[in-house]
C-alpha cells in the first residue's frame, strides 16, 4: 500500500507569520510604556544612592569609626559615638521586639481562634501605620517624663514599637506558609502541640522569620523622628542606658542643617553608612530567603 497518494492535497493552513495587526502593534506600544515607567520609578532610587555615594564617599575613612564629632570650625573627627549609640538602641529594640513579636506570631498562626487572630492582625496593621513621630511622643511621655531624662532606654523602646508589627507580620506569614500536612504528620506521630511548633513549624519558617527581623532592624536603624524625642543626641560617647545617646539618624538631622562644611560632610558620610546598612541588610534578607523551605 502506498504511503502517499498524489490525489490528496496537503491541508491548507493559514500562514503563521506575524501580521501587523492592531493587536500586535498594541503589544509593542504597551511594552514600551511599561518599560518607560519602570525606568522613571528607578530614577529616585538610583539618584539617591548615587548622590549619597558621591557626597559621602570622599569622607569615608577609619577616623569616622573611631573619633568623636568635632566642635564647629574644627576639621576632621568622626561619629563613632553615633554608631555605638545606634547599635545600642537598635539592639535594645531587637531584644524587646523580636521575642515578643515571634511569640505573638506563633500564637496568631498556631493557637488563636480565628476571630481573635483577625482582631490582633488588624491591630498590628494599625500599629504598623502609626507615624513614627507619634511613637516618639509616646515613648517621650512614657519613659522620658518618668525618668526625667532623655535616654537610650526610651529610644530603644520607641524603636521596638516600630519594629514589633514588622516582626509579627513577617513571622505570622512565614508560619502560615508552612503546610498544614506537616503539622498533622507531627501530631500524628504523637508529638504534642508545643513539640510540633518548636521542632517542625518554627524551624521550617525560620529563614523567612530571619528575613523579617532583618528588615525590621534596617527600618529601625534609619528612624529619626522617634529618637529626637527620646534619645536626643550628644557629642560624646554613650554614658549608659539612662543617659542621652547619639545616633546616626539624629546626627544626620542635626549636622545637615548647620552652616559648617565639616559637619555637613559628616552628615553625608553618616547618610551613606545608613544607606549601605539598609542595602546590606536587604541583601542578607534575600540570601536568607533563598534558603527558604516552602
Amino acid at each position: 500500500m502506498a504511503l502517499t497518494s498524489p490525489e490528496i492535497s496537503p491541508p491548507v493552513i493559514d500562514s503563521l507569520e506575524r501580521k501587523n495587526s492592531f493587536r500586535s502593534l498594541f503589544d509593542i506600544v504597551m511594552t514600551v510604556v511599561v518599560a518607560v515607567f519602570l525606568a522613571i520609578a528607578l530614577v529616585p532610587l538610583i539618584a539617591v544612592i548615587a548622590y549619597v555615594i558621591i557626597q559621602g564617599g570622599s569622607r569615608i575613612s577609619l577616623d569616622l569609626f573611631t573619633q568623636l564629632p568635632p566642635p564647629p570650625m574644627v576639621d576632621g573627627g568622626g561619629f563613632a559615638n553615633a554608631i555605638v549609640g545606634t547599635l545600642i538602641m537598635v539592639g535594645l529594640a531587637a531584644l524587646i521586639s523580636v521575642p515578643i513579636g515571634i511569640l505573638i506570631a506563633i500564637y496568631l498562626s498556631e493557637f488563636s481562634p480565628p476571630s481573635v487572630a483577625r482582631a490582633i492582625r488588624f491591630a498590628t496593621n494599625v500599629l504598623n501605620g502609626v507615624p513614627s513621630i507619634i511613637v516618639g511622643v509616646f515613648a517621650y511621655g512614657l519613659i522620658v517624663l518618668t525618668f526625667k531624662t532623655f535616654s537610650a532606654l526610651a529610644g530603644g523602646i520607641a524603636l521596638s514599637v516600630l519594629m514589633l508589627p514588622i516582626v509579627i507580620r513577617t513571622s505570622d506569614e512565614a508560619l502560615q506558609i508552612v503546610p498544614p500536612d506537616v503539622r498533622w504528620a507531627s501530631v500524628g506521630l504523637g508529638a504534642s502541640d508545643y513539640q510540633t511548633v518548636l521542632r517542625v513549624v518554627v524551624p521550617a519558617a525560620l529563614p523567612a522569620i530571619v528575613t523579617g527581623v532583618t528588615l525590621a532592624v534596617a527600618r529601625a536603624s534609619g528612624e529619626t523622628a522617634p529618637l529626637i524625642f527620646t534619645a536626643l543626641f550628644t557629642q560624646f560617647w554613650p554614658q549608659g542606658l539612662l543617659e542621652p545617646t547619639p545616633s546616626l539618624a539624629v546626627l544626620v538631622y542635626n549636622f545637615a542643617g548647620v552652616p559648617f562644611k565639616n559637619q555637613q560632610e559628616l552628615a553625608w558620610a553618616a547618610s551613606l553608612l545608613l544607606v549601605l546598612l539598609v542595602l546590606i541588610t536587604s541583601v542578607i534578607a534575600r540570601f536568607a530567603t533563598r534558603r527558604k523551605i516552602y
Partner: peptide, 30 residues
C-alpha cells in the same frame, strides 16, 4: 498517646523539612 499507637500516612507525601535521618527518628525523639 493514641496517636503514638495508631499512626497515620497521608495522601500527599509530607516529610518534614529535615534530613532523612531526622524524619525517621522524629517520632522517637518526641
Amino acid at each position: 498517646d493514641v496517636r503514638r499507637r495508631i499512626g497515620m500516612v497521608f495522601q500527599k507525601p509530607n516529610p518534614f523539612p529535615k534530613s532523612i535521618y531526622e524524619n525517621v527518628v522524629y517520632g522517637a525523639r518526641v
